[in-house]
Structure formats: C-alpha cells, structure tokens
Amino acid sequence: MKTLFSGLRKTYIGLILALLYSPVVLMIVLSFSESKTKWTGFSLVKYQALFQNERVMDAFITSILLALLSAAVATVLGTVACIGLLAMKKRLRSTVNAVANIPLLNADIVTGFSLMLFFAAIVGRMSHATLFISHVTLVLPYVVLNVYPKLCQFDRSIYDAALDLGASPVQAFFKVLLPDVFPGLLTGFLLALTISMDDFTITYFTKGRGLDTLSTYIYNTYHIKGILPEYYALATILFVGVLLMILLIQAINVRSAARGVSAKAQGTK
C-alpha cells in the first residue's frame, strides 16, 4: 500500500514536471532543427539567424543591462532604506511599507499606465530614463522585503562591539553588518533581476522610441511577423544561461553562508 502511494506520488510529480518542461524541451529540440515546426535533422541555422538579427541581440542586451542596473540601484537604495526603516517609528514604518508595496500588489497594467501618464505629464516623452526609473520602482519592494527581515534579525550588540573594539562605522558596516544581511541582499538582488528581465507590461508602457527589451520586441514582432526561428535559439540560450547562473549562485550561497557563520563566531569572541 505504501509503495503504491509513493509510486503514485512520484508519477504525479513526474507528470507535472513533464507538463512544465514540454514547452521548454520543444523550444530546445526545435532550436536545432531547420524547420520551424518539425524535426528535420540537426542544424544551427536558427542560432546563426539569432546572431545575425541585430534587433533581437540589441533587445537582449537592453534587457540584461536594464535588469542589472535597475536591480543594482534598487538593491543599494533598498538596503540603505532598510537601515532607515529600522530606526523608524512603527506606525510610520507600516504606512511607508504599505505604500511601497503598491507596485507589488497592484495590477502591472495600472502601474505601467500610471507611470506613463505621469512621465508624459512631467517630461513629455518616454526615454531610457523613464524605463529605468519604472523598473527600479517595480523591483524595489522585492529588495526591501528580502533585506529588511535579515536586518531585523541582526544582533545590534555585535555591531556595537565592533565599534567598541575600535572599528570605524564603515569598517563595522562592511565587516559585520553586511556579511550578515548579505544572503537577503543577494536574494533581493536576484529576485529584482528576474522580475526586471521578465517584465513586459511596465516596459511596454514606459519605453522610449526605438528601444525594446526582449519581451516587448517579441510581443511586437509576434504581431507583425509571427514566430521567428531566432526565438527557439534564444529560448535555449536563455534557459541554459539561467540554469548555469543558478548553479553558480547555489555554490556562492553555500560559501557565503559559511562565511557568515564564521564572521559571527569572530564577532562574539
């Protein structure tokens, strides 16, 4: 009976995995085929087409740069803010949090539309800057939500001890506080990165002329040209890239966790 249940469970897990991965596998398999819809033997034409399509590559690079920059700025802004929030009166803090989390809860289309209307009223037209600001706004709550709890857990006496032992505030920050909140910071940064990379709606509303991210480019061309062969290759590269990144982060995470423990041990000594 027990093995039957366990077998059923494994079948169910397998089934869901199969469903989740069928589009991915399809894209990867077809990326090495010449035909759009069938397997016609191994070929790299789609990859060739991808690297020759300047617009897709531009959009790809835009997506990555935008995600990196907005995640970085949001992480810095959010982390600094968290220190401030910690010192804030509880009531004020919960008000601030409630407002700050609006982009997280609100419909993307309303956020995007409101930002567009606001920028149109203030500066007239959309540009790189409006897109960048919108993305930082979008990802900021994710950073705060990940950093703030870690900061709350941080034992202040360790920081004070560091100061008593002659460390400057800057030293104390980097040697004591940062290693401790680093996992939260990293999670926040990565989450910000993926949210920005994957965003379509906000970008659609706030991007300037002649600028596309991967999402808006695909959306646009899908209506004009349908599915380009390049997309299969692109999907494969993206998927494999993300997979590699995750493995790398797993490794870093394990190491930094170990370092965090040792730093804490040193602090209490």
Binding site: S22, V24, D198, L214, Y222, F239, V242
Partner: peptide
C-alpha cells in the same frame, strides 16, 4: 526554472504546441 525563460518565449512555445 521554466519561469525564468522569458515570459514571451513561453507564450510562443505554448502557441506552437
């Protein structure tokens, strides 16, 4: 993990299926 393949590309794949 599949979520991290661009959302638009997911839609393209589903359409193909």
């Amino acid at each position: 993990l599949p979520m991290w393949m661009n959302f638009m590309l997911q839609m393209v794949a589903i359409n193909t299926i």
